[in-house]
Design a binder for these strands. Structure first.
Length: 251
DNA sequence: GCGACAG
DNA sequence: ATCTTGTCGC
């Protein structure tokens, strides 16, 4: 893949600038979101990256719609610089959604990032809406445990949080369900604070390892990527819009 | 030099 | 992220 980006050092500088911009937007959410979008990406050997934006009704938990974006990633995967690889696709997928929404959950970290500017933060500033980062692995910060998994009385269960080198709390560590062994990391992306981010995610964990929006985006992106490689669908069919929600809902 | 290291 | 079979459990 060709890299249209400036040097690694320059990309990191951009993130410091993004972090300074997002800092004052980390405020409590005025009201609970009614419609939330989940963003995730999968990879097709034949066509490259495939991002999916899955729209979910928060009250019912139902998948309302989804959109896709296809394209060769502009950068290889580099820890800390994931946003420069996947955020452009996420942004495009979001623009293709026909329905409106009030919050997005991104697969990856928000401010629990070495420069306080994870992919959820990049996306939040780009779309101008609240975003929450939900990652499956820790990227930055040390974990403070406040609860032992075996002592969780109900699920999801908050096990602790992630702090930076100045003891500032950046993310919550949550055990989604009783059966899941590994926790997930919840952090604010933009236009939302840590407490609200946690509440939103807890309310969308319904027995799944990931909150519903991201859960659906993950399933859909993986299936479509496989379908592309098997020749079951063509890129233009996807771009034209192939939305068979029943296939992912159980209807 | 030795680890750590989202997806 | 992706490469991959069987297997344990509700």
């Amino acid at each position: 893949m060709r890299n249209p980006y400036p040097s690694i050092e320059r990309l990191m500088e951009i993130q410091y600038r993004i972090a300074s911009r997002v800092w004052k937007t980390l405020q409590p959410l005025p009201r609970p979101p009614r419609r939330a979008v989940g963003l995730d990406a999968a990879y097709s050997r034949r066509y490259g990256g495939l991002a999916v934006a899955a729209l979910v009704d928060t009250a019912s938990g139902r998948l309302l719609d989804y959109s896709v974006a296809l394209g060769e990633p502009a950068l290889e995967y580099i820890p800390g610089l994931l946003a420069f690889r996947e955020a452009p696709l996420f942004y495009t997928a979001v623009q293709h959604l026909r329905e409106d929404f009030d919050l997005a959950i991104v697969d990856g970290h928000g401010i629990s990032h070495p420069r306080r500017a994870g992919i959820a933060t990049h996306v939040g500033l780009a779309i101008g809406k609240p975003t929450v980062g939900v990652a499956k692995k820790r990227l930055h910060g040390s974990e403070i445990r406040v609860q032992d998994p075996s002592s969780c009385s109900s699920h999801p269960c908050v096990l602790g949080y992630l702090v930076d080198d100045e003891s500032r709390r950046m993310a919550y560590v949550v055990l989604p369900s009783r059966r899941t062994r590994n926790p997930i990391y919840v952090s604010p992306g933009a236009y939302i604070d840590l407490g609200s981010a946690l509440q939103v995610v807890l309310s969308l964990l319904r027995g799944t390892k990931l909150p519903l929006p991201t859960h659906y985006a993950d399933k859909i992106s993986k299936r479509l990527a496989r379908m592309l490689d098997e020749g079951a669908v063509s890129p233009r069919q996807l771009k034209k819009g192939l939305r068979r929600i029943e296939d992912f809902t159980g209807g």
